[in-house]
Computed example of a mutant assay.
Amino acid sequence: MKRWLVAIVAACVAALPAMAQKRIALTFDDVPRARGPFLTPDERTARIIAGLRKAKVPQAAFFVVPGNLSDPDGAGGERRIAAYVAAGHVIANHSFSHPALKSMTAAAYLADIDRAGAWLKGRQGLPPWFRFPYLDEGGSDKGKRDAVRAGLATRGLSNGYVTVDGSDWNIKSLTADARKAGKRVDMDALRDLYVETHVESAEFADGLARKALGRQPVQVMLLHETDLAAYWIADLVAGLRRKGWEIVGADIAYRDPIAKLHPDVPSAQGTLLEAIAWEKGLPAPRWYDRNTLSIATPLYRRRVLHEGQ
């Protein structure tokens, strides 16, 4: 190709609108989960797989907690994990018992990771990623943080970090509580809130990244294996695409240069992007506002349960 043509192509790419550079991977935590407020575990897995296929998501990552397999309400969890892999997705280590690092020693925490690793060893679709439960890397205990970071490195594991978080666990918990209490749940409003929250969280992360990094890294969205995802993952993907997001695999996301960053901040808990922004000196809030429960919970009650109207 002639040099002048190469220059024209490069100039055109540089001139593309920012939306064309927005890429995001979808990841699901706490697999396999027990029965939810609406679906059996088998129904939920089938719907998530079907929704991802319908939305043409190339690859999602499911972070596994093998200790969940002992829950009798979630019988068949190993079969469901295999179903995700058979559908073209990947699985990764999320610890054996989902502990908070702040509540135990680094040695005990690493032993829990090893226990999960022993269960996962040899399974198909297993990249070398570990995701911290609760996104807790030790809080303000830098010695513990660094000990676990070093332990992961010796095990050949990298941080399965998150950059986009909409606290879907809170939406799910509020829905389960409402169902248990016999309250009417407006399903259309719940769908809209679920989709809107996650799309807005991605947009927030895009803006934060531009400020903290001066560019748009490949984002990683945190979801959980919930009934809400089973119902509306295709709607969520459609909402992201309307905002210009391209859905990519987690393997692409974790090749972004930010994967090599280990921010040194006063408290190591939360998204990687938040920590990067904190280290860069950006003022709070460095997180999407609906991750603040005093904001998210009243919004849910007003819009989904129609309380206080």
Rank of each mutant, 00 (worst) to 15 (best):
E203L: 10
P283D: 08
R303P: 05
T297H: 12
A118T: 08
E279V: 10
G207A: 03
G270S: 05
D177C: 15
E203V: 12
I48L: 02
I49F: 08
R241G: 02
I276Q: 04
D30L: 09
G77P: 06
G77Y: 06
T226V: 06
M104S: 06
M221H: 14
A296L: 06
N68G: 14
T45G: 08
D177W: 11
V6Y: 12
G125H: 13
Y194M: 04
A147S: 11
D114S: 14
P285G: 01
A55G: 06
H89S: 02
T297A: 12
N291A: 05
A212C: 09
F204I: 01
L101T: 03
A86M: 10
A150C: 04
K183N: 05
M187C: 09
W4C: 12
R33I: 10
G67L: 05
G249N: 02
L273Y: 07
A14Y: 12
R191K: 11
D251P: 08
I81V: 12
I247W: 05
D30R: 06
L52S: 00
Q124R: 09
G122D: 12
F130L: 05
E203D: 06
P72Y: 03
V265T: 10
D29A: 00
T271G: 02
L52G: 01
V13K: 03
G143D: 15
D168A: 03
R303T: 11
V195L: 04
I24K: 00
T163H: 01
V6S: 06
R149D: 10
R241N: 03
L299V: 04
R255Y: 10
V185A: 05
D256I: 11
L273I: 11
L208Y: 04
S97D: 15
A106F: 15
W169H: 01
L152C: 14
P298I: 13
R23W: 06
A229N: 12
